[in-house]
């Protein structure tokens, strides 16, 4: 069996195809734990997981918290506003202080790209990136891949359309890296203002035409559009955005009959996705959330209790 040797989970690009397959396989097995009447196993008993969220997050933080608790790890949740950040302490100092209390895993959400890398370099504890600025959100990409694999049986050869605000999206970047690495083809779509320069270097194609993106897609991933972007001149109005890049039943007509509709959340119903699509038969948006717990259980297990430690025994 493939050995998982990563100390940290910082971005998809540092994971191998074998790593990703192992994470997804492990997550598949973890899913069952959440179906039990007593949703807890002792696997990570005595391990300490710090959830350090400098940015507001409900879904991801809760998902990590539940994942840690289902594996019997002790999890401690810190948020930016309650932390010493507001007292002027640097990220590095905060992390060193946390490390001095000997946690096993630090899960970091931070508004600055590269912040988890600073931590990972400085600390012995494993660092899991729960989203850094516009850079990466690897656990989201892994749960997206898991969801697609569960429904399609494979990732290789699929056509994934990712639509919306690519420029500001760490989810889009990590999804691009993950799906391309696993053999899928990715087509990105959005207004030119929200397509970042040089994104083709991820091995993806770009279109500004939503129908072209949907055509032949096995998966349509809709991204949240932040309403603030309007004031940055990225698009004229929510109305025009919804008209041009919102997914509704009309646009869905040209999609494959077995297309999957995904969204990393939180959704703006009526803006990037219409309610009838979000709640329709193609949507697997809540599966993504369920799989999020499984993927994070797998990652916590692999970095703190899994084969990495077994190697040194």
């Amino acid at each position: 069996m493939h050995k998982f040797t990563n100390k940290d989970i910082l971005e998809i690009s540092t994971l191998s195809v074998e790593d990703i397959s192992l994470i997804l396989d492990t997550a598949d097995r973890m899913k069952e734990i959440s179906e039990r009447p007593v949703k807890k196993v002792p696997t990570l008993r005595g391990k300490t997981v710090v959830l350090y969220f400098y940015e507001p997050s409900t879904r991801t933080r809760t998902s990590f918290d539940i994942a840690a608790k289902r594996l019997s790890a002790d999890s401690i949740s810190l948020s930016g506003s309650s932390s010493s950040m507001v007292k002027g302490e640097t990220l590095l100092d905060t992390a060193r202080n946390l490390e001095a209390m000997r946690p096993d895993v630090i899960v970091l959400r931070h508004p600055s790209a590269g912040a988890p890398h600073i931590l990972a370099k400085a600390l012995d504890a494993s660092v899991i990136n729960a989203g850094d600025g516009m850079h990466a959100h690897p656990t989201q990409a892994l749960l997206d891949m898991l969801t697609v694999r569960q429904h399609k049986g494979t990732l290789s050869g699929l056509r994934i359309a990712i639509i919306g605000d690519i420029a500001h999206s760490r989810v889009a970047r990590s999804d691009c890296e993950g799906f391309v690495k696993m053999g899928a083809s990715v087509i990105l779509c959005g207004p030119p203002t929200l397509i970042p320069k040089g994104i083709e270097s991820f091995g993806v194609t770009v279109t500004f035409d939503m129908n072209a993106a949907i055509d032949g897609a096995d998966v349509i991933m809709m991204l949240r559009i932040q309403k603030e972007r309007q004031s940055g001149f990225f698009f004229p109005s929510e109305r025009e955005y919804a008209r041009r890049y919102g997914l509704n039943l009309e646009k869905l007509k040209c999609a494959k009959p077995d297309v999957l509709i995904m969204h990393p959340g939180p959704m703006n119903r009526g803006l990037e996705i219409s309610p009838d699509v979000a709640d329709g038969p193609h949507a697997v948006i809540l599966d993504q959330v369920t799989n999020g717990v499984a993927v994070r259980m797998a990652l916590l297990y692999l970095v703190s209790g899994g084969t990495r430690n077994a190697d040194s025994d």
Binding site: A113, I199, S201
Partner: peptide, 13 residues
């Protein structure tokens, strides 16, 4: 600098 490196690093260009 704006471009592929900034896009990959998630930094504004």
């Amino acid at each position: 600098n704006e471009g592929a490196v900034a896009t990959r690093l998630g930094l504004s260009g």
